[in-house]
Simulated assay, not measured.
Amino acid sequence: MQALLDAIAAMPLPTDAVRIFHGRGGRHPGCEQWSLDAYPPVFVLTSFAPVTEPELAAVNEALQARWAQIAPAGEPLNWVFQHRGEALRVEGRSETRLMAGAVPDPHTVTEAGARYRVQVLRGQNHGLFLDMAEGRRWVREHVAARRGDRPGLKVLNLFAYTCAFSVVALQAGARQVVNVDMSHGAIGTGQQNHQLNGLSAGASFLAHDIFSSWGKITRSGPYGLVIVDPPSYQKGSFVATKDYARLIRRLPDLLAPGGHALLCLNAPELDTAFLQQQVRELAPELAFVERVANPAVFADAQPERALKVLVYAAPPL
């Protein structure tokens, strides 16, 4: 675990939510089980394999030492440990322990000037996926570049989760964002995120199963930007290998002329070619534009196992 300890020893004081160490990328042999994130003012250490108490003690010592060097005066070290071993993952569970300090309640973090509500003491999803930071940056820049368009850009945010894409799109000047996610809890947090950022208009929130709501979704269109960020696998809800095709078939009817689609895939077993082939077969009129790079800290020894974010464009009028 030396690479993890070295990363802690060199980390700057985090102000935004950010990943600090990404062992899962396979670029640090022997540290594949570890990741370390900052959700200021809390650090979250995650292990995907069993750990020993001496290992946790070593991390605590490293964090305490670095915190003594970089912390603002009087601020205590707060950190949480989460174990997501194989048996727990199969059951969809995790074990979380508060190791030092405390966690704010409510807990709000920032990223690129936007504020988000997170929770790090329960569940595996904390409310903001840090590997999607560059995707959110792309949306912000794309929408801002079109804020002068009339009548304004309309965005469809599918599998919206806590609606972070919606927040950045509205901040950048989108006219309207339609957020769709089957989780009432996630949509509720998404509404809180809009309130945190002073966004009182322009967003709608549909806590619906996307595949049962195409009529409502289509009637609200067409859209200048469609964001598709599904789970890679969610039993009873979404399986990428069979369900992504159902989404791609709909894109030509959802997109306005010249509109763009941001297609996200976070399944290590499926590569970029999987998405590209699906688009070629099911929506051939869409043109590939680019693959959005992941944040540098998420670099992977096998890039095709990492998050894939692809941009496509519909033909203009």
Score class of each variant (00 low, 15 high):
P29G: 05
L121R: 05
P104R: 01
V143T: 03
T108E: 14
A301W: 07
Q234R: 15
R115H: 09
H28N: 01
Y223V: 03
D243F: 13
P257V: 04
A267G: 01
A133G: 12
D6V: 11
P14W: 11
A207V: 09
M99G: 00
Q69K: 15
P316M: 13
Q191A: 09
G101M: 09
G198Y: 03
D149I: 10
R115A: 04
R89G: 00
M11E: 02
N157I: 02
F48S: 00
Y39R: 12
A287E: 15
A299E: 07
N78Q: 11
Q278R: 12
E32S: 10
F81I: 05
A174T: 08
V109Y: 05
P72Q: 10
G259Q: 04
P295S: 12
F205C: 02
R175A: 15
F48Q: 03
R249M: 04
H28E: 01
A100N: 11
L317I: 04
G113S: 13
G236P: 07
A296W: 14
L63W: 08
E111T: 08
A102L: 13
G173A: 11
G224K: 00
T218P: 00
D300K: 00
W67C: 09
S200T: 15
G221F: 07
A114H: 05
S183T: 14
G135E: 11
S232C: 03
F81N: 03
D243Q: 10
Q124H: 08
Q195G: 02
V168P: 10
R66V: 07
A306Q: 02
P151C: 12
K235W: 15
N294Q: 12
G85F: 00
F211K: 03
Q302K: 07
A144Y: 11
A240M: 15
V309K: 13
W214F: 15
V168W: 05
E61S: 08
Y161A: 10
R246V: 04
A160D: 07
Q2F: 02
A9N: 14
D229M: 12
R136T: 14
F159A: 07
P29T: 07
L88N: 00
G188S: 12
A57D: 09
A186P: 06
T218S: 11
H194I: 06
P40S: 14
I248T: 05
L4G: 04
M132Y: 15
M132P: 02
L206I: 08
G74E: 14
P29H: 06
G148I: 04
A203K: 13
V120M: 11
F298T: 00
L199Y: 09
V18C: 10
L310Q: 14
A114I: 08
L282G: 02
K235V: 06
R280P: 02
P303N: 05
V118N: 06
A62Y: 09
Q192D: 13
A203W: 13
Q234M: 15
P41M: 10
V118Y: 10
G85L: 01
H28M: 00
